[in-house]
Design a binder for these strands. Structure first.
Lengths: 73, 73
DNA sequence: AACACTATTTATAAAGG
DNA sequence: TCCTTTATAAATAGTGT
């Protein structure tokens, strides 16, 4: 149960890192939700796991749009 | 100093709401930073204030791209 | 993997300068 | 408005199931 101050640096142990990822991701999205509601703000949070999985939170529902994107350097 | 549990609903008082917005926005970005570092994740958070001001956090520096966007319904 | 527990750290609301 | 203080609520690391 939380021994000592946690250092903010990469968690080497895979299992611990995954558990922390899940817990803190939830915590982040909760904070985002609270901020939007308390302060009438629009908030979005986007998280990519190291394996490229996407997790996202948005305070607002938006109708999906059809986008075509042209990217030049 | 924090009397009782804070209800998560719109803060009506403008001054209090602005102070809370500032504090919690910082808190959110800090959590985003910690998540990215602890778990090697890419994290972005975007906040619009009620007046439309933009605040953003990104765990990663990306080269700016020139984008042209075509939106159809 | 996902839930429960809980000691402890961390965030933060309100107040004061 | 911005910093500091501090009491208290909230998040969470490690453990157990």
């Amino acid at each position: 149960m939380v021994r000592g101050k946690t250092e903010i640096k990469l968690i080497e142990n895979t299992t611990r890192r995954q558990v922390t990822f899940s817990k803190r991701r939830s915590g982040l999205f909760k904070k985002a939700f609270e901020l939007s509601l308390l302060c009438d703000a629009e908030v979005a949070a986007i998280v990519f796991s190291p394996t490229g999985r996407l997790y996202e939170y948005s305070s607002t529902r938006h109708d999906p749009l059809s986008l075509s994107l042209k990217i030049s350097s």
